[in-house]
Design a protein around this nucleic acid. Structure first.
Length: 505
RNA sequence: GCCGCGUUGGUCAAUCGGCUAAGACGCCUCUCUUUCACGGAGGAAUGACGGGUUCGACUCCCGUACGCGGUACCA
């Protein structure tokens, strides 16, 4: 009897940084599992030993953790269906491949990679399939004794699926509906490689069965190989155990055409990976969303809406809201272009919505990276609150807030040059002395004081504002200037005016 | 080449036969703020093409075009 519980898996192969498309796949899996009270499983698909990259698995786990997509089972937390790393399950697969051979659904093939390559050079459209396998070196064409001998002497071989002839395969996809394939068009995929490792096709079916996976959410690039999986399910475990398929639309590059790749990010100046990834072989680091100043809430929100919407006008969703609203039938069929500007917009919205305390530590870390010393939290938080609305990325806090903690190194004098005069200088010099008499040190009282000093010098307050801003901030930006002065404190404000005046004639 | 999937503004997209085709991002204008942003109000901008079906097609069907994916002892 097929199992009823919802069990879904995110099954990346640990070959490098975690692509945003991968995170979205993980997200949809996670949402579906949570929505149905099911389990979200992490399985590491490391059957290609030549592509093993040290550190990649740990990195993937950290990315999921940063996003808040915590697996219920996985190589790092264990679980009742382990091991969760395919390389550690190697011994499991061969028996299934051999079972298929016994039933006539697979065969041994002794063609070497070199032979196959030569064949493909000769016939560019060569495919190892129902038509061509009779000309190849395999257990279907060789005498039984020959096969037996070769196997006994350990001759390298693979096991290939034997595609039936002239059959139509119907696959029901939760997103696309009925998809039909013809077996004559499909090649005899390798199931077990010469090194004894299964290929994706065998491993995915065996493990989904053994791990009792109920639904498979994976990228659309897998759709063409689904008929192979279907046949395997049919002949190994029974179609009634087969998970439901949902092939997700691809995330496309913003310009031109094609799947979004790491290279597009490098070229166009935006991240593609969830977090910074350093290639252990070249030492080269690729920037990630996290390090670029994205909140995980925004990152996930943006990804969720790339290919799905709930039909309303709402665009901002927290993870628990997504869990509530998510539905497979509202997933788009067509691929979506990634738009970095929109991603930034999502981040801005989340920065504005969340309390500073929610991401205080992250901001502090960014300041520390720039060697900027910060005051204690009770003083820091109100200051950050003041600039919050103008920060689209968390790294913007450094840019927008630095002047609160470090006096300006340069001044944008050009902004005030036209209106600057000796009278104005005299007025500021007088006001500088006045600062000590301002009580309490509040934006309103500071403003009143400036007004009265300006009036005494036959100047207008409004003409004083920009020069004051330049003296305190260095440039033409930031919150209202008297609030800046309030946050700076009397002493610091006085010092900055004094210092600025000594540099102005 | 073959197979599969897809096609509403520049981008994300709503629409499940009644459309004068939502909304968001971005862009432009105005407004607020005597800084820069935020906010607020407006604006320009869309159904690939050709046939059907229908009283009526963006919506259904069939072609064509275009795009993408697959076609590995990679996943």
């Amino acid at each position: 009897m097929p199992h009823q519980d919802v069990r879904v898996r995110f099954a990346p192969s640990p070959t490098g940084g975690l692509h945003l498309g991968g995170v979205r796949t993980a997200l949809y899996n996670y949402l579906f599992a949570r929505q149905h009270g099911g389990k979200f499983i992490l399985r590491i698909e490391d059957t290609d030993q030549t592509r093993f990259v040290p550190g990649a698995e740990e990195y993937i786990i950290q990315c999921l953790e940063w996003c808040g997509l915590t697996p219920d089972e996985g190589p790092h937390v264990g679980g009742p269906f382990g091991p969760y790393r395919q390389s550690e399950r190697k011994h499991l697969y061969r028996q299934y491949a051999e079972q298929l051979i016994e039933n006539g659904w697979a065969y041994y093939a002794f063609d070497t990679p070199e032979e196959l390559e030569a064949k493909r050079r000769q016939h560019p459209n060569f495919q190892y399939d129902t038509q061509t396998r009779s000309q190849m070196t395999n257990s279907l064409t060789l005498p039984a004794q020959q096969v037996k001998d070769w196997l006994e002497e350990g001759r390298p071989h693979v096991i290939r699926i034997r595609m039936p002839e002239h059959k139509t395969l119907h696959i029901h996809d939760l997103i696309r509906g009925e998809v039909v394939f013809h077996t004559d068009q499909i090649d005899d995929k390798v199931l077990l490689k010469a090194d004894g490792m299964p290929t994706y096709h065998l491993a995915v079916v065996v493990d989904d069965y053994l791990m009792q996976i109920s639904h498979v959410f994976r990228g659309e690039e897998w759709l063409p190989s689904t008929p192979v999986h279907l046949l395997l399910w049919e002949n190994l475990f029974g179609i009634e155990y087969m998970p439901k398929w949902a092939h997700l639309p691809l995330i496309l590059r913003p310009d031109g055409h094609g799947k979004l790749s790491k290279r597009d990010g490098d070229r166009l100046g935006f991240p593609v990976y969830a977090m910074d990834w350093t290639d252990p072989f070249t030492g080269e680091t690729t920037r990630g969303f996290r390090e670029m100043g994205f909140l995980p809430e925004a990152f996930l929100n943006m990804l969720a809406l790339l290919g799905w919407n709930d039909g309303s006008e709402q665009e901002i969703f927290a993870l628990d809201e997504l869990t509530e609203r998510f539905s497979i039938d509202r997933i788009h069929k067509a691929g979506a272009r990634f738009d970095f500007e929109k991603a930034i917009w999502f981040n801005h919205e989340w920065i504005k919505r969340l309390p500073i305390t929610h991401y205080l530590e992250t901001i502090k870390a960014f300041f520390h990276q720039h060697h900027i010393a910060l005051p204690n939290d009770t003083q820091l938080i109100p200051t950050l609150e003041l600039i919050k609305d103008r920060c689209r990325l968390l790294t913007d806090f450094v840019e927008q807030g630095k002047f609160f903690f470090v006096p300006p190194e340069t001044y944008d004098w050009s902004a005030i040059q036209k209106k600057w005069s000796p009278q104005m200088k005299a007025c500021f010099e007088a006001w500088e002395q006045e600062l000590a008499n301002i009580h309490p040190w509040k934006a309103e009282t500071i403003e009143q004081s400036l007004i009265s000093t300006a009036t005494q010098h036959a100047l207008k307050k409004n003409d004083m504002l920009l020069p004051l801003r330049i003296m305190l901030v260095g440039g033409k930006f930031g919150p209202p200037v008297f609030q800046i002065a309030e946050h700076l404190g009397q002493r610091e404000t006085q010092q900055r005016i004094h210092h600025a005046l000594s540099h102005l004639e």
